[in-house]
Amino acid sequence: MSGSNFSNQPAPVNDPAQLTVHGLGAVEALTQAERTRRGRWMMGWVVFLCALPVIASYFTFYVVQPRGKAYGELITPTRDLPADLAPRTLAGQAVAVEALRGQWLLIVVDGGSCVGDCEKRLFMQRQLREMLGKERDKLDKLWLISDEAPVSETLRQALETTPAMQLLRVDGAALARWLSPAEGQALTAHLYLVDPLGRWMWRSPAQPDPSRVKKDLGLLMKANSGWDRPGR
């Protein structure tokens, strides 16, 4: 009788012969889940380390700045580059919105005719970059043209031969949803600053004082020493 009872006992669980395909699948699924978790952690660290220089710039600008406030207006919350901005060159070639990331951008907004104050802002934009000295390679200049008016050949040639300068036509409605002027001002009245992650974060006063704008820009560029991509 006792021998009969022993013969009815199930095989040990750790018997390799008893492992089923279903059991192996569960082990493989667990391993895959662990790999997925590790991959997400690694990706999170990569994103954090890439953003760290910009975070340092913001900390310096908002917290460490000796004057306690910026000359220009800080935009809070910041506004991301719109996917429907539809930038294109003057020749009509489409430019990916992602191509506008990776460098600080000092932006002038105006129509293609660009006379008077528009030309003055473009000149100030160029001078401000040069005033940054060794930090200037971190800043690109960008003229966003909000209409289809032609740009004079003289002005186009002068700007296109200027270092770190881009001229792009954009969708006017998308632009107006992204950048906005101070109350009572036109969109064209300001200089706008966009960070390397593509976020609009600063706006100059209308008719700005270049020396005071330079101090704002200088603080950001110096704090941003880890993010240096000269020459897009």
Rank of each mutant, 00 (worst) to 15 (best):
P87V: 03
A26M: 15
E153F: 14
E73M: 13
L187W: 02
C50T: 03
A149C: 02
A11F: 13
K214C: 14
G68W: 12
L220Y: 13
L106H: 10
L74G: 12
W104E: 07
F61M: 13
L175D: 06
P53L: 13
L175Y: 04
W45G: 07
R101N: 12
P12W: 00
G184M: 05
L193Q: 05
D117T: 13
S204C: 07
F48S: 15
L85W: 04
A91I: 03
Q32F: 09
I107V: 15
P87F: 00
A182I: 05
F6W: 11
P87W: 00
A176S: 15
R212V: 04
R37G: 11
A11C: 14
S7H: 01
R79F: 06
V64G: 08
S2Q: 15
T76A: 12
D228Q: 08
G218L: 07
G116N: 07
Y62M: 12
L24G: 13
T161D: 13
M131F: 06
E183Y: 09
Y58K: 09
V21I: 14
G198S: 09
G3M: 13
G44I: 06
L90V: 05
A223E: 00
L168V: 02
V151T: 02
G198N: 11
V97W: 01
R136D: 09
L105N: 04
L144I: 05
S7G: 04
V194N: 09
R79Q: 08
L219V: 14
A99G: 09
L52F: 07
A189L: 07
G111Y: 02
V54S: 02
D80K: 11
Q9R: 12
P208H: 10
T162Q: 05
A96M: 00
N224D: 06
L197A: 10
G198M: 06
R129P: 05
L142P: 09
T154Q: 12
V95I: 11
V97Q: 02
L167P: 03
T76C: 10
V46Q: 11
P230D: 01
G231W: 03
L24T: 13
S152I: 00
G218R: 09
R203T: 10
F59Y: 08
S152R: 07
W200R: 05
A182N: 13
E183C: 05
W104L: 13
P10Y: 00
K215Q: 13
M221R: 03
D195G: 10
A33R: 12
W104C: 04
E135P: 02
R136K: 14
A96E: 15
D209V: 11
T31M: 14
R212M: 03
P196C: 13
D195L: 11
P77L: 08
A186R: 00
D147S: 04
A223P: 01
C114P: 04
T162A: 04
E160P: 00
T162M: 11
T20Y: 10
R67G: 08
L19C: 01
V115N: 13
A176M: 12
S7Y: 00
T188R: 06
T154I: 08
T31G: 14
L52T: 02
Q207G: 11
R232M: 08
M124A: 12
T76S: 10
V13I: 03
L19N: 00
V170F: 01
M201V: 15
M201P: 08
D137L: 00
A70N: 05
D140L: 01
A26Y: 14
E119S: 06
M124G: 08
P230W: 00
M165H: 01
L132E: 10
E119A: 10
G3K: 09
S146V: 07
D228A: 10
